[in-house]
Amino acid sequence: MRNRSHRSRAVLAFAAATALLGIAACDATGGNSSAPSGTRTRPSPKPTPVWDRSPASMAAVGDSITRGFDACSVLSDCPEVSWATGSDPQVNSLAVRLLGTTGAAERSWNYAVTGARMADLPGQMAQAATRKPELVTVMAGANDACRSSTSAMTSVTDFRTAFQDAMDTLRGTLPRAQVYVSSVPDLKRLWSEGRGNPLGKQVWKLGICPSMLGDADSLDSAATLRRGKVQNRVEEYNQVLREVCAKDRRCRFDGGAVFDYRFGTDQLSHWDWFHPSKNGQARLAEIAYRTVTARKPVT
Rank of each mutant, 00 (worst) to 15 (best):
S93L: 03
A16V: 12
G123K: 10
D217K: 03
F259Y: 15
D77A: 12
R147D: 09
R7N: 08
L20Q: 12
E106K: 09
S93A: 02
V203L: 13
L190W: 11
L12W: 06
D27L: 14
C26D: 06
G228V: 03
A152I: 00
A145G: 14
G68A: 07
F159P: 09
Y180F: 13
R117A: 11
R233P: 03
R107T: 00
L121T: 15
D158W: 12
S192N: 09
L20Y: 04
A59S: 11
R53L: 10
S218P: 00
A126H: 00
R249K: 11
V91G: 13
R131C: 01
E193S: 09
D120I: 08
A119S: 14
G172M: 05
L268Q: 09
R147G: 08
P276T: 09
A56W: 01
H6S: 13
F69N: 03
V181M: 14
R290V: 05
S64G: 01
S44A: 15
S82M: 03
H270D: 15
Y261K: 05
K201G: 08
L199D: 13
Q90M: 13
C251R: 09
H275Y: 14
A282K: 15
R295K: 14
N238W: 02
G228W: 03
D88W: 04
Y180L: 12
A105P: 07
V61N: 06
S37T: 10
T293M: 07
E243C: 00
H6R: 15
A15I: 12
F253M: 00
D70F: 05
D70M: 04
I23C: 08
R67K: 07
A56L: 09
Q178K: 12
V81D: 04
C26W: 10
S8I: 15
A166T: 04
G123E: 11
V298P: 02
V244E: 15
W109Q: 12
K188R: 06
P185G: 07
P89I: 02
V184G: 06
S277R: 10
T154F: 08
L135T: 08
K296G: 05
L20G: 14
I208V: 10
D260Q: 08
Y289F: 15
T173D: 14
S44F: 03
S218M: 01
T29L: 06
P89R: 00
R262I: 02
P133C: 05
E193F: 01
Q281V: 03
R160Q: 11
R283N: 10
R262T: 07
E235L: 06
K229D: 00
V292Q: 01
S155W: 08
T130R: 07
R176T: 09
V258N: 04
S82Y: 04
P43D: 10
N110I: 04
T157P: 01
A71Y: 07
T299F: 00
S5F: 13
R283G: 00
G100E: 04
Q202K: 14
R2K: 11
G200E: 10
D254I: 01
V136W: 00
A25K: 04
T173W: 02
S269Q: 10
D144T: 06
T41F: 07
L21G: 14
Q239K: 14
Q231N: 01
Q124L: 07
C245K: 13
L174T: 09
